[in-house]
Design a protein around this nucleic acid. Structure first.
Length: 583
RNA sequence: CGGGGCGUAGCGCAGCUUGGUUAGCGCGCGUGAAUUGGGAUCACGAGGUCCCCGGUUCAAAUCCGGGCGCCCCGACCA
């Protein structure tokens, strides 16, 4: 490609809309252009990179036995009403009407249409297992799109759906995807880690997220530096704190219980400021309803209750009690709940491990505008069970070993789920099994954020001058930069450019009538991995400078007739680094 | 959805408080000169519905009302 002819307009100054590095660089290097909030045009450079990512994904998916399809971007409402997600999915679902007034939505994911397809066409266990995937545009009307391609409303995603007869089959399908994903992300040059994740609203059992640790990631994960245990923040467990047993079994005295008036002080921040104590001296009492049963969950004032942990502990779905329920139970408005007296009302009292260590703490008085101080558990109220109830934090004990957890920000680039019958059941998607019985499909779903991979690469692989692409997804592999725009140097550059193209190296030549400085800046900004500078060394000693974008300050000089050979060798080497076990 | 900020040339911004020349500056863009190893330099030039609609006024980028768009922070935290 001749740069003089390419649709390429680099920006020297950063558009004000960009905050994240990847967003800034993709805008400056002329990869993307915004059309509306969270909606971007992929310009030639970005599209070339995306096609490479798509190529890798397609290759590995096909290799795993999955088959590619392409489903509609627009879905009839009825399909989503069948699974209840027309309403459940909330405002993320972009709804629209056709001229007849019929409702549709833009597909944010494709469980419904794929399950519809399966129930129509798969009748027998003999057709199973099957895994169908597509690479397509999705739309989610995000509350707040941000970070350019990292969290766009319209984005490109690979989504796959597996159908199996039984658990063993699902397990195999799931494992095949896990392996495929590992290869895909390796080939993309992404330093990912796999974490356990919470099933959440999608339902299903096991699910794994493929995360890339990045300063600006929106997700949080915890990882044990010792044994490698990793889980996202929703899911991460922690072991009982050291000394827990001793504290629980020891008798404890304390100061005298006292009621204090706290007019209109409801939140932890307000109460602790008002009483001039640290938030960690407060105990939050959170009233939940679990399948009709009322439970009180207590966490330290500076901690955050993890509802998923509560739900798992109880084995039930949980929801925060509404104001009426709380007022009815405690005889006090929301904000003044406390554990005292709840036991007598048949409420189960659960407390996070950390509560065990607290004494003379502050709780709500179950009375408007009042709190109790110098409260001690055991003495003033009983606790039915101590458990891990809060979100794990930096420094918490690893649940699998003696190590400690570290917290990281991360970007989720892939997610694989075992769905089970979450969709096949409500949509009555069945097949006839070998035993002649009609059974629901056991489904799995597997997503990869294609456009997000591009921005994630930029986010984790750049320097002050621009992007540093891995060769597998760089828009080009080589970049020829003639220092002068005419004469001998230009002729040499042209010859190298032509030879590289013949040697199947995807190459750009910067033949623009620009100063050398401008060319260097643009070359580094775009971040193509192999840089070929045709400059004064050609005249001095018939040598061309070849260097890697990631290691610019360490060039090698090779005779003109060795350039193609050297570049080809570098190219092979760079590809080999991405899958070291195979070369 | 709540809070904060912004909208003036392709990009980055000033001007607005206190209404009043022809609406400025830097970069970019065009032509030419010179130059050619890291976004130099010089000359000339083009480029604006001051987000939109309405109001106040002799007069609005500027004041008032409404709308739209964008960015940032926060969202059952008891």
């Amino acid at each position: 490609m001749r740069l003089s002819q390419m649709f390429f307009v680099s920006l020297r100054e950063v558009p004000a809309e960009a905050e994240l590095v990847s967003h800034k660089l993709l805008l400056r290097a002329c990869f993307i252009r915004k059309l509306a909030a969270g909606v971007y045009t992929y310009l030639p450079l970005a599209w070339r990179s995306l096609l490479k990512i798509i190529g890798i994904v397609r290759e590995e998916m096909n290799k795993s036995g999955a088959q590619e399809v392409l489903m509609p971007f627009i879905h009839p409402a009825e399909l989503w009403q069948e699974t209840g997600r027309w309403d459940e999915y909330g405002d993320l679902l972009m709804k629209l009407q056709d001229r007849q007034g019929r409702w549709f939505c833009l597909g944010p994911t494709h469980e419904e249409p794929i399950t519809d397809l399966a129930r129509q066409l798969i009748k027998s266990y003999r057709q199973l297992p099957i895994n169908l995937y597509q690479i397509a545009t999705k739309f989610r009307d995000e509350l707040r799109p941000r970070g350019g391609l990292i969290r766009a409303r319209e984005f490109i995603m690979k989504d796959a759906y597996s159908f199996d007869r039984n658990e063993e089959g699902l397990e195999q399908s799931f494992e095949a995807m896990r392996q495929a994903y590992i290869r895909i992300f390796r080939r993309c040059g992404l330093p990912f880690i796999i974490v356990e994740a919470e099933a959440g609203a999608i339902g299903g059992t096991e699910n794994l997220e493929f995360m890339v640790i990045a300063e600006n990631g929106e997700d949080r994960l915890l990882r044990c530096s010792k044994c490698g245990y990793a889980a996202n923040r929703e899911r991460a467990e922690r072991r009982k704190p050291k000394g827990f047993e001793e504290v629980v079994n020891s008798r404890r005295e304390g100061e005298n219980l006292k009621k204090v008036i706290t007019p209109n002080q409801r939140t932890v921040e307000e109460v602790s400021a008002f009483l001039k104590v640290k938030p960690s001296q407060l105990v939050k009492t959170l009233i939940y309803v679990a399948d009709g049963e009322i439970v009180a969950a207590m966490v330290r004032g500076d901690h955050e209750l993890n509802e998923a942990k509560l739900a798992r502990l109880l084995g039930k779905k949980v929801a925060m009690a509404d104001a009426a329920t709380i007022e009815n139970l405690t005889n006090a408005p929301v904000g003044f709940s406390g554990p005292l007296g709840l036991k007598d009302k048949g409420v189960k009292l659960l407390a996070d491990y950390d509560i065990a260590f607290m004494r003379d703490f502050v709780v709500g008085a179950n009375e408007a505008d009042a709190h109790l101080v110098n409260v001690n558990w055991g003495r003033d109220f009983p606790i039915d069970q101590f458990a891990d109830l809060r979100f794990a934090e930096q420094g918490d004990g690893c649940p699998k070993c003696e190590g400690n957890l570290e917290i990281h920000n991360a970007i989720e680039v892939g997610h694989i789920f075992k769905l089970g019958t979450r969709y096949s059941e409500p949509m009555k998607a069945t097949f006839v099994d070998e035993d002649g019985k009609e059974k629901f499909f056991l489904m799995g779903c597997y997503g990869i954020g294609i456009s997000r991979i591009l921005s994630t690469i930029v986010e984790v692989s750049h320097d002050e001058d621009g992007i540093i692409f891995p060769i597998s997804i760089a828009p080009f592999e080589g970049w020829v930069l003639p220092i002068e725009n005419e004469g001998e140097l230009m002729e040499v550059a042209e010859r190298i450019y032509a030879d590289l193209k013949s040697a199947n190296v995807e190459t750009v030549i910067d033949d623009r009538d620009e100063r050398a400085g401008v060319k260097f800046k643009d070359m580094d900004l775009v971040g193509v991995p192999i840089q070929i500078v045709v400059g004064r060394t050609v005249r001095e000693r018939s040598e061309v400078e070849i260097r890697l974008r990631r290691d610019r300050s360490n060039p090698t000089y090779v005779p003109i007739d060795k350039v193609v050979e050297t570049v080809c060798q570098l190219k092979r080497q760079l590809f080999a680094e991405l899958l070291p076990d195979e070369n």
